[in-house]
């Protein structure tokens, strides 16, 4: 997301916005890290549901690198899932 206009003018508001962004980004990155080696269920567009063992994501979250992807038509040992194809994903901690 871009900087809000209020943030650019007012240093106090800018700092508050940076702090909020950093806190939320750190939480999100830690969540991504914790997914490594966990079994993830992906709900995708066109009502496609798959499960896979999570490997890693690139930082802009454009691709998920996964293993043992269980698709409706078989298992793919190593795969990349396009994040644009995904609606949601879930896993247990």
């Amino acid at each position: 997301s871009s900087l809000s206009t209020s943030g650019e003018a007012d240093p106090v508001a800018l700092r508050a916005e940076q702090r909020a962004r950093a806190m939320m980004r750190e939480r999100f990155l830690r969540c991504l890290i914790s997914m490594a080696n966990k079994k993830i269920q992906f709900l995708m567009y066109e009502r496609v549901t798959v499960a896979a063992v999570f490997g890693a994501s690139d930082i802009d979250v454009l691709n998920f690198q996964v293993s043992d992807l269980q698709t409706p038509i078989g298992v793919q040992t190593e795969a990349l899932i396009r994040c644009q194809d995904v609606i949601s994903y879930s896993f247990d901690m």
Binding site: M44, V48, S67, L69, T71, L80, D85
Partner: peptide, 13 residues
């Protein structure tokens, strides 16, 4: 290391 290929081959969206 793993040389993953896109799944599905054609984007859903």
């Amino acid at each position: 290391r793993k040389l993953p290929k896109y799944w599905p081959v054609i984007p859903l969206r």
